[in-house]
Every structure is written in structure tokens, then in C-alpha cells.
């Protein structure tokens, strides 16, 4: 149990998907102009990462490893992820059209999010049990969402500051992200898993 918790803390904070592994940067820069959109995107991505990691684990174990098709990993994982996104869209639409209408924009953007493919590939390299793999994926995604929301908060305040024109927009956002990455470095060593 303790190992699992340590593993999850490691995945969420120590090896944070965005600030340490550099995955999901496109949406990190694009969707974090408001806290609520960042939170919505974070939740949607967490869901997709969890579900697609479940599917990817099964594909890796029962298809790729069983038949020695390891080299097809990239292609199959991308297909699984795209299907997971489609599946999520369909399900949300069925569950509640009003929910779909609010959240519909986030879903297509998740498909090419490096974080989804990245987390899946990380899973494939560590041979964990199903539940451990899914928890790892969930924890990584939770770390991603956390950083998105924190960064959105920072950017909301940044929008009110007077930034030199040359730095306005992406450059100052990168520099602030660098400072946030420095802060998160404080977590290193907490979990060595």
C-alpha cells in the first residue's frame, strides 16, 4: 500500500508530467489563460489518460507482447488513444447532451496531447500490474491537472501585470513556467520510486 502511494506521489509531483517530463506542453501553454478552462481541460485529460492507459495496458500485454509485435507500439497506441477519445465523446453525449455541449471542445484537443501518448509509453516500459498501471496513469494525470490549474492562476495574475512588449505572451509564460519548474524541483527525493 505504502509503495503504491509513494509511486503515485512520484508520478504526480516528483516526476511531474509537465514540469519534469515535458509532456503536454501545447495544451499547457494554450488552455491555461483561465483557471476554469484549465480545470476543465485537466479533468477531461485525466479521464482520457486513465481510460486509454487501461486500454493500452491490455493491448500491450495481450496483443503486442503475446505476439511479439512490439514495434507496432506507436501505431497501435495512437489508434487506441484516438478511439478512447471518440468513446469518451460518444459516452458523454449519451449521458447528457448539456454536459457534452459544455465539455465538447476539450475532447478533440486531447488526442494529440503528448501527455496521453507519453504516459501510455511510460506504462509500457514498466511492467506493472493492471491496477498499479492505472493508478500510475491517474496520478500522472492528476499532477498534470494540478500544474495546469496552478499555472492558470499565475497567468491570470500575469495578464494584469505590465509586461514589456517584447516579452508579452509566450516568452513571459515560459519564464514563469521555468520558475514553477524550479519550485517543483523541491519535491525531488520525496519518492524514489
Amino acid at each position: 500500500m505504502k509503495e503504491t502511494v509513494m509511486m503515485m506521489i512520484g508520478a504526480a509531483l516528483v516526476n511531474n508530467v509537465i514540469l519534469a517530463r515535458f509532456l503536454g506542453l501545447c495544451s499547457f501553454m494554450g488552455v491555461t489563460t483561465r483557471i476554469d478552462t484549465a480545470a476543465g481541460m485537466g479533468l477531461a485529460t485525466t479521464f482520457v489518460i486513465t481510460v486509454s492507459s487501461m486500454a493500452d495496458w491490455a493491448v500491450q500485454r495481450y496483443l503486442l507482447e503475446a505476439y511479439g509485435l512490439g514495434f507496432l507500439r506507436t501505431v497501435t497506441f495512437i489508434l487506441v488513444i484516438a478511439s478512447a477519445v471518440q468513446f469518451t465523446e460518444m459516452v458523454i453525449r449519451k449521458v447528457s447532451p448539456s454536459l457534452f455541449q459544455m465539455l465538447g471542445i476539450y475532447l478533440p484537443l486531447i488526442t494529440t496531447n503528448c501527455a496521453v501518448l507519453g504516459v501510455a509509453l511510460l506504462l509500457a516500459e514498466n511492467h506493472m500490474s493492471f491496477i498499479a498501471a492505472t493508478l500510475f496513469a491517474f496520478a500522472s494525470a492528476a499532477g498534470y491537472s494540478l500544474v495546469m490549474v496552478i499555472f492558470a492562476g499565475l497567468r491570470e495574475r500575469l495578464a494584469l501585470a505590465s509586461v514589456p512588449r517584447l516579452f508579452a505572451g509566450p516568452p513571459i509564460a515560459f519564464i514563469v513556467a521555468g520558475l514553477l519548474a524550479m519550485a517543483f524541483m523541491g519535491f525531488s527525493g520525496i519518492s524514489t520510486v
Binding site: F22, L166, I175
Partner: peptide, 22 residues
């Protein structure tokens, strides 16, 4: 050391975008 670690990546990229803008 920080330059090779993640924060350095963000900082250098941000600054290089500024250079390109110049």
C-alpha cells in the same frame, strides 16, 4: 546546473523567442 534541468529548458526557450522577436 539548473540550465540542464527542466527550468533551464523553459527559461532558455522563452529567451530565445524574445531574441527571434528582436
Amino acid at each position: 546546473l539548473m540550465m540542464i534541468l527542466p527550468p533551464g529548458g523553459f527559461l532558455v526557450t522563452g529567451l530565445l523567442v524574445v531574441v527571434k522577436r528582436l
